[in-house]
Amino acid sequence: MDSPHTGAAVTAVDFGLKGPRGWAFRGVHCTAPAGSFVAVVGPSGTGRTCLLLALTGRMRATEGRAEVGGLPLPKKMTAVRRLSALGPVAGVNELDPAFTVAEHLRERALLQRRFDGSLRSLLRRPSVRRAAARARIETALTAAGLDLATLAKGGRTSVRDLERLEALRLSVGLALMATPRLLAVDDADLKLSDEERAQAWELLRSVAAAGTTVLAVCSEPPEDALRISTVSHDAHDAHSRSRTQDPTEEGAADALAETGRS
């Protein structure tokens, strides 16, 4: 098993998930060492989001086998959820547009302290706990490349007023507050200009370089990323003929209800 202080290696052999509307994905193979930057690719409707959720323990695979950090899926889904974190995933883990950036950060720090902190940390003086929360927030924002001073209203900026790349950085920063070994990001390059896309790839590369394995669903993957495809050569023609039978990314929430989620 990987060291708990490194990223999580990800492997899959004939990995597949069948939902209420047919196969979300099938026959997926991958070998990604710890600390890899991995692009999840495939045509829209081929289960990219479902694969992302399955490899982070949020959806139960129905075929083949996979391991994340040495933990087998779907047998150890709960353990895999603990070592992984989600960035933005539509319908599953989205930013609240009514919240400010600071409110999101405070809420995440509170949740981390309540559910992930040791008993000893919970017994610390309030001033010590607040200082630890501030340090956790600052470290995560630095890793995500988000400088609150550059936002229109600083931390009081509403999520609805963020640019797409700023929202991506915030989501990644919130996920990194859990110090995960695996970070999963859906639609990483959605609605980004070429310049913004390059900045997004640099962000995710830096997270991987710091030791956290990154899985990112994208439409135009960078050349240096490892790739996991949701469509094998053998399955491509079948997908083209029967696409309406497959759950799409937009149907991920339905499949979650069917297979269970945390």
Rank of each mutant, 00 (worst) to 15 (best):
P43H: 03
R48C: 07
L51C: 04
A54P: 11
L55Y: 08
L55A: 09
G57I: 05
R58A: 02
M59P: 01
M59H: 04
A61G: 15
T62V: 10
G64S: 14
R65V: 13
E67V: 15
L71T: 08
L71N: 12
L73Y: 02
P74D: 02
K75R: 00
K76T: 08
K76Y: 08
K76L: 04
M77G: 08
V80K: 04
R82H: 08
R82E: 11
L83D: 05
A85D: 14
L86I: 06
L86K: 12
P88Q: 14
P88I: 13
G91Q: 00
G91L: 00
V92Y: 02
N93C: 13
L95Q: 10
P97G: 08
P97T: 07
A98G: 06
F99D: 09
F99K: 12
T100Y: 00
E103T: 12
L110N: 12
L111N: 11
R113S: 15
F115C: 07
F115H: 01
G117E: 09
L119M: 04
R124K: 13
R125L: 15
R125H: 13
P126H: 06
S127G: 01
V128I: 09
V128K: 09
R129Y: 05
R129T: 05
R130Q: 15
A131E: 04
A131S: 09
A133G: 02
R134L: 10
R136W: 00
R136G: 03
I137W: 01
T139K: 11
A140V: 02
L141H: 07
L141M: 07
L141S: 03
A143R: 09
A144S: 13
L148E: 11
